[in-house]
Design a protein around this nucleic acid. Structure first.
Length: 824
DNA sequence: AGCACGCCGACT
DNA sequence: GTCGGCGTGCTC
């Protein structure tokens, strides 16, 4: 007997195991590893979609096994390599099978069965005594919904919870009918085509028979030429109507067929060709070195550390050309497509049609189309954000991860994977080259390069022979002592004036949106906080309202303090909106544009701003970290960093690294053309090692200092971290649960012989933001100091996965984050 | 996740 | 008594 071992499409820890089903003989040949099937599941034999992870042969006849009902796919939806990745991910990230599987499959492909309840035409009034109020209520609700409704919709209209019982009673009484409908969101977009069915020798008699049907004759003659054409096009070209075509079909001369087409997410957008250019010495060396691995199909990892403007993109482009020549495919990851439109357009401009683009604001349908294009091998290159690492290429030659230090490569939802981590494993599985690139590599990657895991390639010079900009640090404390209370230092204002008069462009950077992030009472110190989150509300001057940046809650501004009724309200914590206002006051004639989440939420707004900046319709561009990467505008000669301290002061072990990266990246926007660039960096901590290093563009010295600190305090790359997050509405309960997990954890580790637990387990502590959307948050941090990381993971798996129901009650959410990028 | 079963307080 | 809410345990 053949048995399929499947994972059912249920996102629950309790069903996260392989279930055995008998494969009926007629499905023997169709059921394979990686295919989807329908199976009966549970007491009611609810039909569920399931993924076949194994097919085994069993000698003993187990009559208790249920049978596979049907297969969904012709071909496996998950390849052998992808299956291997699924198993690996579950182990690595302690996630469920189904969570790993869903990474590989677009949402719109997942089938879910919905219960549809239909009222039958019976005189239910007689059958149901009027005392049965509940049942009658269900029926009247059903009538109001038009006689039939899906169960979930029906439940929204009825406020008691035990609806299933009543549904069952109604079904027994034959008052309603239940149907299961597959809520398949598969939306292969098709277009109707016609195909001619007439053989050559039949042609003459048929044509003569159509003497009186002029239009039909025209249609047939056109079809004879092209054999197959879309209905729409045919009708347009022939100037005929559908009815003529229909009568041809009735006579059997033609047939209609549905042909799959793709929606193009880029519409008719044309990309300027981006011509290949001759690489300089450094670039050429890098290309040659990596090409060798592409040629040998060795799964080597390269880390390209190249200063801003060193032409990393051109290296990627030329390497991809080599990959394509070998008949292989390439994946390019960029931090966030919408933030790097220039990079994307260069790829499109060089390679044209055979690229699929996966960015975060594609609709489900568009995402599905791109995925299909990849699967049908219509593209050779995928360029996309984090999730593009799962692109279903069959012959992968290379993975490029640009700006590899970016935190967006780490998923914020379970499974909390790191795309670099996945890329490493995937390149290993599929013998493809992995190329990481950054002007400011993450300490993890750089450390691994030093250790010899990655091959380091350094680019010291800018490709266009321009120099790196000079960076001038302004001590804002001194500025203040000299009587300048403005947020702009004298130097910055002067430099902005100079740049304006030279008709060059300025970028001002501040990593905080809104107008003011803190409103507080001068008299009693009260600060306005969100009622749902433990966070101060930010004043937005455009809407003249207060917004919570965590839950989106909006409040009117407070004119007087709700505590002491003082009317002295202080607006502190400067954001980009306020900068914009102040710039306009200081430079009334300058054309100023702000670019942050608030000005770019509309589709296409992003490109529009960059386009007008490119055409020099903007003198001063003000923005958040959105402007820190990928922008390449030669006329920008001044970059002003309003405050480097916002990131520096975060209570996170990566604060210094983030600051160095951000400052270096932003500074890199200046002086990319013929003119020298200048950066003015304002800070209250001019002597901090990350500030000093970034002013000298000295990555190596920063890394040296930072690595020493990381080693001393046992942080990555010298330790692995495991963060457990607990949240729930009842603060006391959240703490109690977190505490019991911590206690049990300590007990397990202690009994394994590890006595120094204070360094290994920290917490539970309230999270940095202790409340978000009315949920209280606590966390436990685990570090592998003097203990194998695998053992920590094993203990976590035992407590929070294998015995989850014992430790985590309903109402408490607990997430596991392996090597989080941030522990705040 | 969904569903059945069984316990228990709150009502006609 | 019994209705309905809620916790528990199971699904090949």
């Amino acid at each position: 007997m053949q048995i399929a071992q499947v994972i059912v499409n249920n996102n629950s820890y309790q069903t996260d195991k392989l279930f055995d089903y008998e494969i009926p003989t007629d499905l023997f040949r169709k059921v394979k590893r990686g295919i989807r099937v329908m199976v009966p599941f549970g007491n009611g034999n609810k039909r569920l979609e399931a993924y076949v992870l194994n097919v085994i042969e069993s000698n003993s006849r187990n009559s208790k096994l249920k049978k596979v009902l049907a297969v969904i796919d012709e071909e496996p939806i998950l390849s052998e390599d992808q299956l291997r990745l699924v198993f690996w991910m579950r182990n690595q990230y302690l996630c469920k099978y189904i969570e790993a599987i869903h990474c590989f499959i677009p949402k719109s492909m997942v089938n879910k069965e919905r219960k549809k309840i239909t009222l039958l035409d019976h005189s239910w009034e007689e059958v149901l005594p009027s005392s049965q109020k509940k049942l009658r209520n269900i029926i009247t609700t059903l009538q109001a919904l038009g006689g039939s409704a899906y169960l979930d919709l029906l439940m929204q209209h009825i406020d008691y919870k035990e609806i299933n019982e009543s549904i069952k009673v109604l079904l027994e009484k034959n008052i309603i009918d239940i149907k299961y409908e597959l809520n398949s969101k598969i939306n292969i977009k098709t277009e109707q085509y016609v195909r001619i069915k007439i053989e050559e020798e039949q042609w003459q008699p048929i044509i003569s028979s159509l003497k009186r049907a002029k239009k039909q004759k025209i249609l047939l003659e056109m079809l004879k030429e092209v054999k197959e054409i879309s209905v729409k096009e045919l009708l347009e070209r022939s100037n005929t109507s559908r009815s003529s075509l229909n009568s041809l079909q009735e006579k059997g001369y033609i047939e209609y067929i549905d042909v799959e087409i793709s929606r193009n997410p880029f519409g008719d957008k044309k990309f300027d060709p981006f011509y290949k250019f001759e690489p300089n010495e450094e670039q050429k060396k890098a290309i040659d070195q990596i090409s060798a691995s592409i040629k040998n199909e060795s799964s080597e990892t390269y880390l390209i550390h190249g200063v801003t403007g060193s032409g990393k993109t051109e290296i990627y482009l030329q390497l991809i050309e080599k990959v394509l020549k070998k008949g292989k495919q390439a994946i390019v990851l960029v931090p966030e497509i919408s933030l790097t439109p220039q990079t994307v357009s260069r790829f499109m401009g060089r390679f044209g049609e055979r690229i699929a683009v996966l960015h975060s604001n594609l609709s489900d349908g568009e995402r599905y189309d791109e995925w299909r294009r990849i699967l049908r091998q219509e593209v050779d290159i995928v360029i996309g954000a984090r999730s593009a690492i799962f692109a279903p290429f069959k012959n992968l030659g290379m993975i490029v991860i640009d700006e590899e230090h970016e935190h967006t490569y780490k998923s914020e939802q379970t499974p909390r994977y790191n795309a670099i981590h996945i890329a490493e494993y995937r390149s290993h599985l599929e013998n493809s080259v992995l190329v990481l690139g950054s002007a400011t590599p993450s300490l993890e990657s750089y450390h691994r390069a030093i250790e010899g895991d990655f091959t380091l390639i350094t680019l010291k010079n800018r490709a266009m022979k321009s120099n790196l900009p000079t960076v001038e640090v302004i001590n804002m404390a001194e500025e203040f002592h000299h009587g300048n209370t403005s947020i702009f230092s004298t130097e910055l204002l002067k430099a902005m004036a100079d740049t304006l008069s030279n008709h060059h462009q300025t970028i001002l950077f501040l990593n905080r949106r809104g107008h003011s992030s803190v409103l507080s009472c001068k008299a009693c110190g009260y600060t306005v906080k969100c009622q749902y989150c433990d966070i101060t509300m930010t004043f937005h001057s455009a809407e003249k309202r207060l917004k919570c940046h965590y839950c989106g809650n909006v409040k009117n501004i407070v004119k007087s303090c709700p505590e002491c009724h003082s009317e002295e309200i202080k607006y502190a914590g400067i954001g980009t909106q306020q900068i914009e206002d102040l710039v306009k006051v200081n430079f009334p004639k300058a054309k100023v544009q702000r670019m942050d989440m608030d000005t770019t939420s509309r589709k296409g707004a992003h490109e529009k701003i960059l386009e007008s900046f490119k055409h020099q319709e903007i003198d001063i561009l003000i923005g958040t970290q959105m402007i820190s990467k990928g922008l390449d505008f030669p006329n920008v000669t001044l970059v002003g960093i309003i405050s480097a301290d916002t990131t520096l002061n975060l209570p996170d072990f990566r604060a210094a690294e983030k600051t160095f990266q951000l400052v270096t990246q932003v500074a890199g926007r200046a002086g990319r053309g013929l003119e020298e660039g200048k950066v003015i960096l304002q800070t209250y901590e001019p002597n901090h090692y990350s500030i000093v290093a970034s002013t000298h563009h000295d990555y190596e010295s920063f890394v040296k200092d930072e690595l020493m600190i990381r080693k001393e305090f046992h942080y990555p790359p010298f330790a692995n971290l495991l963060l457990l997050n607990f949240s729930g509405k009842n603060e006391k309960q959240v703490y109690a649960i977190a505490n019991s997990v911590a206690t049990n954890m300590k007990y397990i580790l202690y009994s394994e012989g590890f006595k120094e637990l204070d360094a290994i387990l920290l917490g539970p502590n309230p999270s940095m933001i202790s409340k978000i959307k009315e949920s209280y948050r606590y966390q436990i941090l685990l570090k592998d100091i003097g203990i194998p990381f695998s053992l920590l993971k094993k203990a976590v798996k035992y407590l929070l996965i294998d015995n989850r129901s014992k430790y985590i009650p309903q109402g408490i959410t607990c997430t596991i984050d392996i090597n989080p990028l941030s522990i705040i």
